[in-house]
Design a binder for these strands. Sequence first.
DNA 1: CGATTTAGGAAATGATTATTCTCTATTCTG
DNA 2: CAGAATAGAGAATAATCATTTCCTAAATCG
Lengths: 240, 240
Amino acid sequence: MLIGWPGREAKPGKRFLQIGLDSEMIVSYKWDMADIAPSASISVSRSRGRPREFDMNDALDKAVRVFCKRGYHATSIGDLTEAMQLAQGSVYKAFKDKRAVFLAAFDRNKAVRAEKLQAAIGAGGTGLERMRKVLAFYAEASHGAEGRQGCLIVGSAAELAIFDDEVALRVAASLDRNEVLLTDLIRQGQADGSIPAHIDSAATARLLLCLLQGMRVVGKTGRSRDEMAAVVEVAMKALA
Amino acid sequence: MLIGWPGREAKPGKRFLQIGLDSEMIVSYKWDMADIAPSASISVSRSRGRPREFDMNDALDKAVRVFCKRGYHATSIGDLTEAMQLAQGSVYKAFKDKRAVFLAAFDRNKAVRAEKLQAAIGAGGTGLERMRKVLAFYAEASHGAEGRQGCLIVGSAAELAIFDDEVALRVAASLDRNEVLLTDLIRQGQADGSIPAHIDSAATARLLLCLLQGMRVVGKTGRSRDEMAAVVEVAMKALA
DNA sequence: CGATTTAGGAAATGATTATTCTCTATTCTG
DNA sequence: CAGAATAGAGAATAATCATTTCCTAAATCG
């Protein structure tokens, strides 16, 4: 993590906090990484000037909802300021540009969803039981009104992955992470005997990854909870 | 099918061919439905004025590629004219507006993909064998460069389904149609003995629908043919 | 052939949008 | 308390984009 001046910035003088995860994954943030962690943290070292009046996590959560519904390109700065309850100038004080808002919202969404998923999986239970909870978690997000809202990862993959390498990397990283999670759960199930040993953990995890993302797509058409729950039941049979 | 003047059109005087599938699904076309059928048809009754110089199907196929890659909102009229090799004025001679180009491209894509899918499935074989061909067809479209291009249905679902009822209806109709196709194949397999009778055809078809759409999402991250083929193999085991 | 109709093409228009600018307000530092 | 630094807010700007307009070209109809 280093402080610097982004090379592509038009005018020097504005400092951005850069977070380097990868040479391609440099984003200009104006706040600390801890600020977007799911559990709202107290800003340890208060910075110099006038303090920010709004809560960054709240604002980003609202931005997430807007980007989910409208997608990136159909979301105007006006849509964002309205949802985040900020003036346009304030947005540009906090973010380099619209894309930076999106990337921050993406990261925030990833952190929140990951935390919720972990909470849904819980600590105990067999691999099979925990896998059922993962599938149920996605079924829950893929029906009714929430399903219609859509998924930021699916939306980003469809809308941005081809022309924005940074978004593409994040989408791929999110999917890869999910794939690893699914693989681990299958292996755990095979270790505890709840999932047959003959199952190909890698290929089955990939199938489930596709299934989960597909549920988010089909969920955009407003399916019922029962319809999605039935899908989960059939998927579970693939692990028997 | 009736000829009329769209109610929401600003200025009267321009006639559009309206195709009424549903009270909500009225689109302003300026050509006959047969023109966008996959097998290029000869224009039976040549119309009055100067004939169109470009081939509508070719142009729409090019529009499909652009919309797939860029999505709806990121596609400018300039992008379309460049891809379709038309002047801006010509686009507006042939289509009411950008949205009409998109809807026509969507319909064209649907027709082309349906024809290719039917060709891939073929006429003979058991239900199970034909199902494998369906899955393989989607695996083929979900890997490498073609996978990265993306799927117009997934993109439309993510980007437009919430705010454009007409697009939402078309997306839902496309998915429903696929779900029916999958259900029929399972039932055919159960009738010819290639698929066990105990399988829930409706729920399994819905699972496969989600899986196929999800493959298109995951395929945006540039997976290999082998990875997608492995998914197909695992999915087939769900039908055993 | 002349009138009518429709297509091709490029420039003009009008609206929208992302971004910047300017001014004020509020905090910390010395 | 003075000054530096940052945030809030709304107006101004500059670019982009969808759409219209205007003119020419090519076909059919009477």
